[in-house]
């Protein structure tokens, strides 16, 4: 019996959200009186694998096959299934991101296991195995009880703070037999925004709406994002008008995010937009319309013209950073 966690890395360094997932798995393991085993695929150094011990992993199973540096849902599913079989896993944790959302359902279907997609808290074991998740795109939560023997969870990034502890994990090689079909997906080209913070795991997000009037004005928002070390996002009309790429669109039909700080500039706050961001811990709304519905969902509001307020806020942040 154990808990296993599928980790993700970028060029051999574990992503922050994977450290969060390992810690989440360790907490579940502690509740169940068992241990957590992390699973890593592809090229990762032994030193890096051992660091997962500081987040609660006693053991790391490593499938070093270089073909796994490209993502394949079939191959990664086999990796998780092999690890789960070896460890007698009762709980399998993946991330609620493009990797986990492609692997976990396959694993769950193969094991006929119940699954909670997008968990935002630890399971409640007092009567079954009940996990809280977002539903209606963040407008509500549901408590889902998994009734199968094995449980599969995808964890929403930024659901809990990541705390580095002590310890080093033992690393074991895991061998998995693949077939050609597992690597039938050929990666032709990868394009990534370099240097920026990925939106899904960003703790600080600065977001713009139609109030910015056009893509040529986005630099004032980006200046603020840079001064804070924040990711940028946008509302649906902005993505629909191709002012910003679609992957920045947050809201009911875009991404759902839950950063510590969400600053909305020139976004009125339609119910569909709020659905994607109301899990944010603190919301700041900057708008010149006092009737903007977003003010009702905000913690802090600034009534004013974004073209004046944003540069002032950027200056204030720079001043704060210089003194702290």
């Amino acid at each position: 019996m154990s808990v296993i966690v599928l980790t993700e890395h970028a060029q051999g360094s574990f992503k922050k959200k994977s450290l969060e997932a390992v810690q989440y798995g360790a907490k579940i393991a502690a509740m169940m009186g068992t241990s957590v085993t992390a699973v890593a695929a592809g090229n990762v150094s032994n030193d890096e694998l051992q660091t997962l011990g500081a987040y609660g992993a006693q053991k790391v199973l490593h499938v070093a096959d270089a073909r796994l540096d490209n993502f394949s849902s079939r191959a990664f599913t086999k990796v998780v299934l092999a690890a789960a079989a070896q460890e007698g896993a009762k709980v399998i944790v993946c991330l609620h991101d493009t990797t986990g959302k492609a692997v976990a359902p396959r694993v769950a279907a193969r094991l006929q296991a119940g699954m909670v997609a997008g968990a935002v808290g630890l399971p409640d074991l007092s009567s079954g195995f009940t996990v809280k998740k977002n539903v209606f795109s963040g407008k509500a939560f549901a408590f889902v009880n998994i009734t199968s023997d094995v449980k599969v969870i995808t964890l929403m990034p930024n659901s809990s703070a990541v705390v580095k502890g002590e310890g080093s994990a033992s690393v074991e090689a895991l061998s998995v037999s693949f077939d050609d079909q597992d690597f039938a997906v050929q990666v032709q080209q990868v394009s990534k925004a370099t240097g920026s913070v990925p939106l899904s795991e960003a703790e600080l997000v600065v977001s713009g709406g139609r109030g910015l009037k056009g893509p040529e004005n986005w630099h004032i928002l980006e200046d603020l994002a840079t001064s804070l070390g924040a990711a940028t996002a946008c509302s649906r009309p902005v993505a629909d008008s191709h002012w910003r790429p679609h992957n920045e669109h947050v809201g009911q039909t875009g991404g759902t995010i839950r950063p510590n700080l969400y600053i909305a500039a020139g976004i009125s706050g339609a119910i569909q937009h709020l659905a994607g961001v109301n899990g944010s811990k603190t919301i700041v709304v900057i708008n010149k319309d006092p009737e903007a519905p977003f003010f009702k969902a905000a913690d802090y509001g600034v009534l004013g013209d974004v073209f004046e307020v944003l540069p002032r806020l950027t200056e204030a942040v720079k001043k704060f950073k210089a003194n702290n």
Partner: peptide
């Protein structure tokens, strides 16, 4: 079935927005 929804919950309501003067961004920070 291998899972079922036990109950729902609405997110906690915001306690009310605190307005900051547009020329006082130091206070917001």
């Amino acid at each position: 079935s291998v899972s079922n929804i036990v109950s729902f919950e609405m997110p906690p309501a915001k306690t009310g927005v605190r307005m900051i003067a547009a020329d006082n961004m130091d206070e917001l920070v």
